[in-house]
Write a protein that binds this DNA or RNA. Sequence first.
RNA 1: GGGCGCAUAGCUCAGCGGUAGAGCGCUUCCCUUACAAGGAAGAUGUCACAGGUUCGAUCCCUGUUGUGCCCACCA
Length: 877
Amino acid sequence: MTDNTQQPGPGPQRAPADLPTQYAPAEVEGKLYDRWVERGYFEADATSDKPPYTIVIPPPNVTGSLHLGHAFQHTLMDALTRRKRMQGFEALWLPGMDHAGIATQNKVEQQLAEEGRSRQDLGREEFTDRVWQWKEEYGGRILGQMRRLGDGVDWSRERFTMDEGLSRAVGTIFKRLHDDGLIYRAERIINWCPRCLTAISDIEVDYQEDAGELVSIAYGEGEDRLVVATTRAETMLGDTAVAVHPEDERYRHLIGRQIKLPLTDRTIPVVADEHVDPEFGTGAVKVTPAHDPNDFAIGRRHDLPSLTVMDERGVITVPGPFEGLDRFEARSTIVSALREQGRIVAEKRPYLHAVGHCSRCQTTVEPRLSMQWWVKVGPLAQEAGDAVRDGRVAIHPPEMAKRYFDWVDNMHDWCISRQLWWGHRIPVWYGPNGETVCVGPDEEPPTGEGWTQDSDVLDTWFSSGLWPFSTLGWPEQTSDLKKFYPTDTLLTGHDIIFFWVARMMMFGLYALDGTPPFRTIALTGLVRDEHGKKMSKSFGNVVDPLDWMDRYGADAVRFTLARGANPGADVPIGEDWVQASRNFANKLWNATRFALINGATVDGPLPAAERMSATDRWILSRLDAVVAEADAGYEDYQFAKVSDLLFHFAWDEVFDWYVELSKTVFAAGGEPADVSRRVLGEVLDRTLRLLHPIVPFVTEELWTTLTGRESVVVAAWPEDTGFRDAAAEAELATVRRVVTEIRRFRADQGLQPGQRVPARLELDGTGLAGHEEAMRALLRLQPAGDAFEATATLPVAGATVALDLSGVIDVEAERKRLQKDLAAAEKELKQTTAKLGNEGFLAKAPAPVVEKIRARQATAEADITRLTGQLERLPRG
RNA sequence: GGGCGCAUAGCUCAGCGGUAGAGCGCUUCCCUUACAAGGAAGAUGUCACAGGUUCGAUCCCUGUUGUGCCCACCA
């Protein structure tokens, strides 16, 4: 892989006639991608001298297929790495997938259910075999989609979180954290999904407002009677206390006493606890330490026992009339039983409150006391926060940093064990006498009678948290790790800051001795439909990116996504917009076709400025400015800005004006034509390079055809050569203004665009003489005799452009046009005069602003004079 | 209950102290020898509302309303 930019190419690869007039993405995209991979363009070399640039892909779950959100993020990551590669970096974009523990297990269980089987029927080993099969089948689909999108990833380094190497990383860090006392086992209240039958972490719980019912139940007898309010009556079987606020006069006399718990033969104490809000409900709270995190905390403070009343499926286990009832059945049954006993003092009251649901299956989460493994996040999170606070890691856009801090600074310990079969098994063994041994990946597990391995697996985010370095070979000190760690940019959705980003930070800093896993965290928004609505299956507005890519090409989808990529903001996308992008690709195609037909050249130095026309100097001046601006935009993740800039530069300036003006030059031939050929080639060459990171396919096809060189993928990134020509820019601005003005006149006159009109252009003294021929061609003017009456004049550069159009003038139309312009000029004069009469303005406004207003005033005055004169000279209708 | 963000053309969004912008849509004309997936010309906005700061506010400040997102163990 060499930079082939400097060598002259053999010339255009194909004759212009070979290029059809429409770009057909389907015919080139697959071919080009295969070529890139074959030539190894995306394979990074750990031994090279080039500075590294690394992005690790947020590994998609093997469960799914890529959606527009992936397409969006992949486009941006691809653009970043492609640009860096062109800039001469050793660019690595490392691909891979996540085993997605609970999600994948659920999918395979569903598949089994359709066969009428359960995972228990298969047993652990056979079940995991089955998941591996599933991975082979569906994982391949995702990789195919990535190729289709044009992702320039290094396939030789593809990784999967359950790979042997990555599993070693998991074992290694577990052991190290364990030995450092940062992983421990403890019995606590956890979020339990009674359907998935596993613990889940806090952030895997979705809270939704549910309509519950608050019932008031009388506890105790006689003088000890007191009323509690609850939405979860079924848990009362496990109550081991009632808590009241210590200052609450209503209950003071009861504190410390034992009261009768209804429906049971137990008595429970009344305890005083600061956390009870006397204002809420009755001010007395039933305490169920085994089934509520708050109550668990109260229980600990008061040394209360915990009584578990449900099994793992949410079925009541307390012997008696409620045994065997599902938790929701139990709730109503228990309320009825209490009512019969006259213990419901206030009837059910509707009560809206947040209830946790399993983010994987939406089942209502059951807080449950259970023994789990935990990561002690305190010191890790502190480091993770500091790395951003002290600037070692930048968050982009910066507003998002607050969200990150809120999380890492208030993080609870992380429950990492899952009662699943698919995932990394916890490397801990239990001995016959209650011994516990944490076994590192290089150690032999204890053998002998009675030793068993912990049956749980790790939270899937545990292995994802190691991704930036486990994929590079850690814990081995590989050349990849040395060369490519830390990675440069982590680009991902802001929705997984907590799940993933914060955890990679914690683990990276811990495992790599304080080196954070990336330098910049670039957070993107979510892709939405064309009305800004979230894409979801229930709305029926989900779009398969493959469908659009098939119809409009991958570039069109990519360009549309890039154009919507305002930092941190959500990205709306609609099919119309993809069409517009497709049209742009086609425009590029045809402009290049024009260049080839006219013999544009890309080799050798640019002609000296003296040999170039003002038009040539103008476009080259603009080109350099655009290169600088686009480059800065890329550097700042301003993809929308860059795309928009290049779109308008290419279309509005190069294609609509430079190309149009150059047609006359090419027709005339000679030295000016040679110069323009080289300039046009240069402009296209660099514009295509600038666009390549975003729209790799069409630019590759056109650039190689135009230059005859190997590939734009390995071409040098364009640089601002510092060529600026303000005079030429001003001159061309005038040309454009004059031409537009005359076109407008023509349109107002109802002249057909193609109609040749006898006319005379008097450009003496305007400085535009050199453009006369081009302007005449653009305006479809043909030579006229002498007997013309001036009917359209424009003040330009201190002189006058006189356009004579006799015999074709619609006097009334022209009068209307002039009157409208006159009114506008008068308004402008009034405004500017008022402004300039304002002393405060003159005293405080910066000089350039005042000058600008003065110029506007002068223009308005001149316009009024001219327009008035023209109106007077109009023949009477 | 906290925190953050947003309200600009019919739609989706840029912009930002000094004459309101883009894409799509819309109107009129045109198959002009790169392109009809195109060309030319054009219409459209009390920049949410109310105050304030300023010579000047769409932009800065305050409040109001509407709207979206994140976080939160009040039964």
